[in-house]
Design a protein around this nucleic acid. Structure first.
Lengths: 150, 150
DNA sequence: TCCTTCTTTTGAATACTTCAAATGACGACT
DNA sequence: AGTCGTCATTTGAAGTATTCAAAAGAAGGA
């Protein structure tokens, strides 16, 4: 099990060390690609009084300081992950919103560049693969007779 | 100016031909990458009684029948475009949300196919380039003294 | 022209996220 | 160890983009 130095992470980023913040980081470690709501539920297991608003605040602080990254897939709620700095992309399930990491086999940062930047100062290339995850693949393709009558 | 056969487009897709629908298609022709709100404003110039709800309905119908495509960039409102069927990507301004088309990307092909699909049935690879558009590049980098005191 | 079905309207509701003011706690400094 | 200023958290509400639902209206095949 990777030992997280939550204290060092926070202090190194210039943030005060508090229980809610440590708990959010640990939640993200256990739940990669978790939504704010999922993080809140996980944090509540050990710190029942931490509000959802605080989770949003913390996630905002973490992403602002580069300790976390937010993923905003289309119409699904935002997800958060601790993997920052490495160049990886995501597989997103169009049905349930589940996310899996895809490592960029070509290695270094933006593996793609536009042929015409239209005057934009391009900072990042984001690749999202849309599809059905293992569970939804079966659920959607072959719904049980019961589920039809919902 | 390209003459749009709105009647043929709608009938060909199995949709009834109505003024609001023709107006939405024409709005998208004049405003590529427009938001629902922007489409509504444009439509209202000729058909003031068309509601925003109707615009949402029409956009939903058009995307459902493959006549239009929706782009959902992070936390910006959804945008719509008539360009469908060709494989192109987008440049999105992180500051104002402006969108420009990118016809093709140069770089390593492996990035457009996941090395490990994690059991997903991948349907599409979407590439989004994030950056600052021409206007925002200057506005953000060198704000005028006046704007600082807002 | 009639009639069925699809569209549009109106009004409200939802989900996710952010804003704001007051209370509370971290930690730099003494 | 104690003080104090600044930053965090809580509480409660507001906001934005979008969707739901029921009733009235229009398209177009027979």
């Amino acid at each position: 099990m990777t030992q997280l130095d939550t204290h060092g992470m926070l202090r190194g980023a210039g943030l005060r060390v508090t229980e809610p913040r440590r708990a959010v980081i640990e939640a993200l470690e256990g739940l990669p690609h978790a939504s704010a709501d999922a993080v809140h539920a996980r944090v509540a297991q050990t710190l029942p009084d931490v509000s959802l608003q605080t989770v949003y605040n913390v996630l905002h602080d973490l992403t602002g300081r580069g300790l976390a990254r937010s993923i905003e897939p289309g119409d699904h709620p935002a997800r958060y992950e601790l993997r920052v700095g490495d160049n990886h992309h995501h597989l997103v399930c169009t049905h349930c919103g589940a996310i899996a990491d895809v490592d960029c086999v070509v290695g270094q940062a933006p593996c793609l560049t536009p042929d015409d930047d239209h005057g934009y100062a391009v900072a990042e290339a984001e690749v999202t693969f849309w599809g059905l995850c293992g569970d939804c693949k079966h659920a959607v393709a072959a719904p049980s007779p019961v589920s039809i009558h919902l």
